[in-house]
Design a protein around this nucleic acid. Structure first.
Lengths: 312, 312
DNA sequence: AGTAAAGATGAAATGAATTCATGTGGGGTT
DNA sequence: AACCCCACATGAATTCATTTCATCTTTACT
């Protein structure tokens, strides 16, 4: 009788199965038995008259048909989420709930500062924040609605929306610079380097701007897994750090920190929004992303990005 | 347990109810009892915690919330139709079925002539045609997938895609012109006019090109409800007709018909596609519309559109 | 006012999805 | 290689939801 449509519960189980890639796992997610999942998927396969799942031994795959259906599920369920959301807002002034991911330092300072305007003009939005250094996983697992990040995430079906450029800067205390007589980049080899990692991938935007023969290997690396830790480390004369400029604007202004290599301008990173394409259709996301793209934080403004502070 | 989703059967009943605007009617369409429809809608209203339907006495309306949900239903069921279609094509080389509406004369000559190329390059498409003078009703009732028409259809949620310009021309047999000594448009008042309607709305594109003082009222109108009838009427010396130029290209070339007012170029009409916006997402429609917009039929080509035939 | 048509409602019946209990098979371990 | 463990498949029974049936209420039209 209902042959011209599909069973949404079957679709939902198939959809989560496609994400979880495990029958028992989806059963747990949907609060049903593993048997129910198995039955539902089988029925769905019968109704569309084609196999959707390919399992040889350990690994779980969707067939070509399965992937087509999966993508449609994304559309369908985001649309459903959108209606429920819209109806809730429309009928009972409910909150639109957004879960937003961003890097720790950016989120805890810049984002949290500027998001206030959005929350005041959009009182019906409820924002939650996930500040983390690992943002890809929350993005792919749909834990968050979208993320802001300066790392790239070239994932299929994921949109990248440019927000602003981020300038890096080398920092140390003026006392440290004078005491170690730091004049050129070669001096980096005989001082302490503060970095998020021991391999100094963190310093790459600095290193790639040097001519090839000067791409010295940094030694004496002190690993500090938090930008604020690096900044305070530098202030306290632990060594030379490399941090986003917006994080130390005040310290550079007050002279608490100096840039020991003012004539070297490191490559800029880009802050982008990363969002699964189908989630762009959600009204709430459109609204917030619209606000974010229009945002021009003074911390990333022209006068700060163009020249370096060279206080002594 | 399934609280975060919706029941598709309930949605389907609500959706068709929104179209049919009658419980008993919907019941008939879905082959269930009226009671089932009533129960289903009520359950849906409970689950979204808001009224969807407003009925005072005779007339049936959707509430604001109902309209929101209705629009989402269009999206959702279009997407479902699209997947089923795509899966069918993908797994069993099934036909993509399109039902296309167009005006009788255009469809039976131009369209049917040029669509052949499409059907040969897209063997997996199955096209059905509805040639009719009343195309709006089949469009709004979803009887057809989309229509091609030179009449305007300013319906909400309906997209208009330009195809090509259509030139009109006045026609009569050379004998008729000579016998009645037709020299200028004022002569129209003393001869027989062939028109689709008695009010000569059909002639409007001719009349509006005349200067105001010359907008004579046409008398002696012979009503013929088919373009081919008008053409053959003109050929047989019944009077002067006003028809799309593409319908009489051959007759004008062979001299069977002449244009009695070669210096008057009537306003052109526009052939457009009219399609409900959500249906633009269907792959099959995208494909066919892509073909149609790329089409440049010789019948509407530059050399035919620019100058009139003035054969004697 | 009376009647017909359309929708609402509650209890029973029908039917489909979930569960329970159990079977099968691949992978890793010793 | 034999074993066990984990993940999935399967069939019958149960449970739950939706449909139906019978009936009542409402509205419009004569």
């Amino acid at each position: 009788m209902w042959g011209f449509t599909m069973d949404l519960y079957q679709l939902k189980t198939f959809f989560t199965l496609g994400k979880v890639k495990s029958y028992t796992g989806t059963a747990a997610v949907l609060h049903v038995t593993q048997s129910a999942v198995s039955h539902a998927v089988k029925k769905l396969e019968t109704s569309v008259e084609t196999g959707l799942i390919q399992k040889k031994g350990k690994d779980f795959k969707l067939t070509a048909a399965g992937q087509i259906l999966f993508r449609s599920c994304e559309m369908i369920f985001t649309e459903i989420e959108n209606v429920r959301d819209t109806l809730k807002v429309h009928t009972q002034n409910a909150f639109r709930h957004i879960y937003l991911g961003s890097p720790v330092e950016f989120g805890t300072t810049i984002l949290i500062r500027h998001i206030r305007e959005f929350m005041e003009t959009n009182p019906l939005f409820h924002l939650d924040f996930l500040f983390s250094h690992n943002l890809r996983e929350p993005l792919v697992s749909d834990e968050v609605d979208f993320i802001i990040d300066c790392n790239d995430h070239p994932l299929p079906g994921t949109e990248k929306i440019f927000l602003f450029r981020e300038q890096y800067v080398t920092i140390c205390s003026p006392d440290y610079r004078d005491r170690h007589r730091i004049a050129g980049v070669t001096d980096l080899q005989r001082v302490h380097i503060l970095s998020m990692d021991t391999e100094t991938v963190w310093w790459k935007n600095f290193i790639i701007t040097l001519p090839p023969e000067m791409r010295l290997i940094l030694k004496n690396v002190i690993q500090i897994n938090h930008v604020r830790g690096i900044i305070n480390g530098a202030i306290n004369g632990l060594g030379i750090g490399f941090v986003p400029k917006y994080t130390v604007i005040n310290e550079l202004k007050t002279g608490l920190l100096v840039n020991p290599f003012p004539d070297i301008i490191p490559a800029a990173d880009h802050f982008n929004i990363f969002i699964k394409r189908h989630k762009l259709r959600l009204e709430k996301n459109k609204t917030l992303i619209g606000f974010l793209t229009r945002l021009q934080p003074v911390e990333f403004g022209a006068e700060i990005m163009e020249n370096n502070y060279t206080l002594t």
